[in-house]
Simulated assay, not measured.
Amino acid sequence: MFPLQHLWARTGVFTVLLSPLSLLFAVVSGLRRLAYRRGWLASRAAGVPVIVVGNITAGGSGKTPLTIWLVNWLRSQGYYPGVISRGYGGTARGCVEVEVDSPAAEVGDEPLLIRFKTAVPVVVGRDRVAAARMLLERHPEIDVLVSDDGLQHYRLQRTIELAVVDAASGLGNGWPLPAGPLREPRRRLEQVDAVVQVVRGATLLRTDLPVASWRVDFSAGSAYRLGDPRETRPLHALPQQDWLAATGIGRPQGFFDMLQAAGIRFTPRAFPDHHAFRPQDLPADGAVVMTEKDAVKCLSFAGHQWWALQLDVAPEPRFIDWLSARIEQELPSRVRREMQDEQF
């Protein structure tokens, strides 16, 4: 995925060579959207409001950290959220509920991280309608579903669509897959409820998007030792030594930039997105720093000096105000539940 991000950043020979396949992809995906819009293919309601956090580009735009923030924010507001995800990279067949000790190889690294960071019920499955059904059957207290990714999974009806765009890379060269990063045309952003731009460090907001957007800042939080996650330190307080910065995420440069900004001396090593880490990939006796998405796959064999960097996610206040007002309109169940609780 890392080399593709460079190729997708501009139009070149690579783009021209793959343009026939991109045209075919655009036609097929367009027909599929039309089929759902016209009702030729049926969509299904989950029974509770559904918030989709997705994007129109391939690669890491920041969906999962925003999903984690959203779920924890919903809990702080008194809701009972659950999460559904495809479980990309996992081997699970059908629908599987994610536990804190589930193998990442089975359920996928991102759903496992969401479960670890939120403690809410999470179910993975290629069929998100079936995943939603399982989640609600097992956890009837859930009053809102959050779909990690799934913007293009039109079979599941949604109440609110949040599209995430990485401010550094934007929409790349603007071409559909595989010549570019687009899963859907850029005008799709005009149809979602809100577009959020993920900003890392000194990156500027993009002004070339077809719609206005909200700002969400990602910054380096504290780090914890994989062998004992209760041991945390500010990133700048890690020992002054040469670190191996290893990561298997869609946009590794953002991670490396955070380390550099904190004054960490490191050697970067980027693996493919969703890489299934093995003990031989990293030095057991070395000083290693990684993202939390990588860490959930390394807990069982982590060396003593392996640390995971947490992300601080900070949406702009106006976005939170908008989201709060919108959800209050869509989730009257919380009000009814509070009234019932007061009666008892």
Rank of each mutant, 00 (worst) to 15 (best):
V124I: 13
Y154T: 03
C95K: 01
L151H: 08
H153E: 05
S147L: 13
I68V: 06
T64W: 02
A130M: 12
P65T: 00
A92Y: 02
Y79H: 14
L151E: 05
S85K: 07
V83Q: 03
V144E: 04
G78H: 04
Y88V: 00
C95V: 10
Q77L: 10
D109Y: 10
T67I: 00
I160N: 11
T64V: 01
V123R: 02
D149L: 13
V96K: 00
H153C: 08
M134P: 05
S76H: 06
E110P: 10
V83E: 02
R128K: 12
T159N: 15
A132D: 03
S61W: 04
R75F: 02
A92D: 00
Q77T: 00
T159Y: 14
D127S: 12
R158W: 15
A131G: 06
G89N: 07
T91N: 09
V123D: 01
L156Q: 13
D149K: 14
V71H: 00
F116K: 14
L112F: 14
G108A: 11
R126T: 06
I160M: 14
P81Q: 07
P121Q: 08
L70C: 00
E99N: 15
S102D: 06
W69G: 00
I160V: 15
L74V: 01
D148C: 13
R115A: 08
S76L: 05
R75A: 13
T159C: 15
Y79M: 01
Q152F: 14
G87W: 07
L70P: 00
V129Y: 09
G87F: 10
G150F: 11
S102M: 11
R115K: 15
P111D: 02
V71C: 02
G87T: 08
Y88L: 02
G150E: 04
L162S: 08
T67V: 07
G62N: 02
A105H: 08
L162G: 08
I114Q: 07
W73D: 00
R138Q: 14
V120N: 02
E137Q: 13
V164W: 06
I160D: 09
E141V: 14
N72V: 03
G108N: 09
K63N: 02
G87P: 07
H139I: 05
I68R: 01
L70G: 01
G82R: 09
L112M: 13
M134T: 12
L136Q: 06
S76Y: 03
L156A: 14
I160E: 09
V107F: 05
Q77I: 00
G62E: 02
V144C: 14
G94M: 05
